[in-house]
Amino acid sequence: MPITVAGKSIETDEEGYLASRTDWSEEVAKEMAKVDNCELSQNHWEVINFLREYYEEYQIAPAVRVLTKAIGKKLGPDKGNSKYLYELFPYGPAKQACKYAGLPKPTGCV
């Protein structure tokens, strides 16, 4: 099901993940979030940008446990916990944040 951003149609899979990572932009992320009735705050962007950097380094989208631990190391224990991440991404921190970051669905996510 494609989404439309700035008049351009962007292909996504049946779960809303980008068909091509090269289509990602902040505007695309905002549109995806709007579909989920989510407005992206600075805290959301910290996680999204962290995920994009993580993917660039490891070529894999982290599962939620790995994400939580890695966020804690980089952004501090107040942000590296499940409660905080689920408040930001109620549909699942790894799944929802990776989708907004233009990354593939994390391994092990249903």
Rank of each mutant, 00 (worst) to 15 (best):
I10P: 05
G108F: 01
Y84E: 05
A29Q: 02
N49L: 12
N81T: 06
P62M: 04
G7V: 01
D78V: 13
L40Q: 02
L40A: 05
Y55N: 05
L88G: 09
N49Y: 10
Q42Y: 11
L40K: 02
K30L: 15
I3M: 08
Y54C: 06
A94D: 07
G80Y: 00
E15F: 11
K8W: 03
I10G: 03
Y86D: 04
V28Q: 02
I60N: 06
E14L: 13
P93Y: 09
V110G: 08
Y54H: 10
E15T: 09
K8L: 12
V47A: 07
I71Q: 01
E31S: 11
R65V: 15
G72M: 00
K74D: 03
T4S: 10
D78Y: 07
W45Y: 04
T22S: 14
E27G: 07
E39A: 14
D78E: 12
R65N: 15
S82F: 15
Y54L: 10
I71H: 00
E26T: 15
E57T: 09
G76D: 00
Y55I: 03
A6N: 13
N37M: 13
H44W: 02
W24S: 03
K95L: 13
Y55A: 00
G92A: 04
E87Y: 15
E26L: 12
Q59H: 09
D13S: 03
A19V: 13
A29C: 07
A94H: 03
L75P: 00
T12Q: 07
G80A: 01
H44D: 06
K30P: 03
R21P: 14
K69L: 15
V64L: 08
N43E: 13
V35Q: 06
S41H: 02
I60S: 10
G80N: 00
T107C: 10
V28P: 01
P77G: 05
A33G: 02
S20P: 07
E46W: 12
P90K: 05
V5S: 11
L103Y: 05
Y86A: 11
T4Q: 08
R52Y: 04
P93M: 14
S82A: 11
L67F: 01
D36L: 10
G80E: 00
Q59N: 14
K74Y: 04
R52C: 11
E11I: 06
Q96F: 14
K99R: 15
R52N: 07
K105W: 01
D13P: 12
P106W: 01
Y86K: 13
A97V: 09
P2F: 08
R65H: 13
P93G: 13
L88K: 02
N81S: 07
K30C: 14
T107S: 14
P90W: 10
F89N: 08
W24E: 06
T22A: 09
E53D: 11
Y54R: 08
G76K: 00
T12E: 05
N81H: 05
Q59V: 11
P2N: 06
K105A: 04
I71Y: 00
V110M: 09
V35F: 08
T22I: 14
Y84W: 14
K8N: 05
A61H: 12
K73W: 08
R52A: 08
E11V: 13
L85Q: 07
W24C: 02
G108C: 03
V5Y: 03
W45I: 14
E27P: 00
A6R: 11
